[in-house]
């Protein structure tokens, strides 16, 4: 069982969902982003999505775009990402790299897998890499015992839910709505339906929900039906609006309480 599976399983054993926090490496700078990640771990995040900056983040809304643009222009690269992975591991959470595909391919798929494993990384989430195109990555991830997390969406057919979840290890990322990252007033019914359909396709795989969750109440709502709650833009907004690590801690405490008050799930 991988570290990620263990961590999500441990949360489940406590009768709650795991809290997964996304923060991009390099905003406001590399050190600042690592401090924010460590602060989130200290305040109760189970898993950190260590974001790789990318110049063309087609699945991200304006909040994450703005932060990542700063990191890209500063030349933040995979070496910095791996340093953040080590720091998160040392702080006691499971780091999972979140990256559009090109930065990984440019670094070298095998080299990335080897270096990520050496840094203590659990695996990678690849938002624009579908399993159909992921042959080399899956082989490299198997070689280095890394998890690979692909995405499912409300528009995914049942056949695609089956094939995508079959290619996942660790968990599957369920995109709650059709759209880009960003905080939303409501998460909506689509997420719950998608999680139910995904469980039917893959009963043994953890299903974590992302896109749109920004506070403890929404986290509680999602935690009622998902194995993990993924929060990204709300974290980045704390940094963009200057609340720094204190803001990250406060948000984490709110979210961590949220995933614990969802009640017992089946």
């Amino acid at each position: 069982m991988s570290a990620l599976q263990e961590r999500i399983g441990a949360a489940k054993a406590e009768g709650r969902s795991a809290l997964i926090a996304y923060l991009p490496v390099g905003y406001p700078d590399v050190e600042g982003s690592i401090e924010a990640m460590v602060a989130a771990v200290g305040a109760g995040a189970d898993v950190i999505e260590v974001g790789v900056p990318y110049s063309d983040p087609g699945m991200d809304g304006p909040v994450i775009q703005e932060a990542v643009d700063v990191a890209v222009r500063a030349g933040v690269g995979m070496r910095d990402v791996l340093r953040a992975v080590e720091a998160v591991t040392a702080a006691g959470a499971v780091p999972v790299v979140m990256s559009y595909w090109n930065p990984i391919e440019r670094y070298g798929t095998d080299r990335f897998a080897a270096d990520l494993a050496a840094a203590g990384g659990g695996g990678a989430i690849t938002p624009d890499l579908i399993p159909d195109e992921a042959g080399a990555w899956i082989v490299a991830a198997q070689e280095h015992d890394l998890d690979r997390v692909f995405l499912v969406a409300p528009s995914s057919t049942d056949a695609r839910l089956r094939s995508t979840t079959a290619a996942c290890r660790g968990f599957v990322y369920a995109a709650s709505t059709m759209g880009v990252t960003g905080t939303r007033a409501t998460v909506g019914d689509a997420a719950e339906k998608l999680v139910a359909r995904t469980r039917e396709a893959a009963p043994d795989l953890a299903v974590c929900v992302g896109l749109g969750v920004s506070d403890g109440d929404q986290a509680a709502e999602v935690a009622a039906f998902a194995d993990g709650v993924i929060v990204g833009s709300a974290y980045v907004r704390e940094l963009l609006e200057g609340r720094g690590v204190e803001g990250v801690r406060a948000l984490t405490r709110d979210l961590a309480a949220g995933v614990r008050r969802a009640g017992v799930r089946a």
């Binding site: 087609g58 969406a153 409300p154």
Partner: peptide, 20 residues
């Protein structure tokens, strides 16, 4: 059939767009 010109082409998009 899946849009590859040798090693080039393919589909590198979020899953949400695959159905469309």
């Amino acid at each position: 059939a899946t849009g590859h010109f040798g090693v080039f082409g393919g589909r590198f998009v979020p899953e949400a767009l695959i159905a469309a």
